[in-house]
Amino acid sequence: MGSGPSLAVDVSMNTILSEADRAKYMDPGKIRAALSSTKTIAIVGLSPKPERPSYFVGTYLQYEGYRIIPVNPRATEILGEKAYPDLLSIPHPVDMVNVFRQPEECVEIAQHAVQIGAKTLWLQLRVVNFEAARIAEEAGLTVIMDRCVKIEHGRYSGSLHWVGMNTEIISARRGQRYF
């Protein structure tokens, strides 16, 4: 991930979380670490329809080098990957569980995320469930809430900036080179 090393920034826009919860669930350091260490992302609620937001996110993540695993009981294959009806059916390890479902479904999803040994539970914008967060945190998972994984990837890789968005990142330190 790029965009300079400074993380002393309070990303405060477009969220319904309190300042205390923002510090907990949308910390820039945690988000960057999660996006850097993750290789496989199970997307719960990924739609097969190309015009849907989840599809935009899936195709973005795939292009950025992540392996995405669709979790959708009504699909067999999405974006060239086999779809599974639920997290427990995925036969291989998953680093991150990314959720496009209603908040009330998230407790069960969090329990499943813990069972399959995921390292991060990421709930999309306005998908907020503190009980789900607690379950995942207690099992040692990193929890991100009320954030879009595509927007955050774009924020810290620098590309969100190219479409005139206010990333809220302030840093005088030089951007990083990867190699």
Partner: peptide
């Protein structure tokens, strides 16, 4: 990993945002 957060002022953002 968590670091103290700062809300930067108007003049700082004039120069850096």
């Amino acid at each position: 990993m968590t670091q103290q957060k700062r809300k930067f002022g108007f003049e700082t953002r004039m120069l850096h945002a």
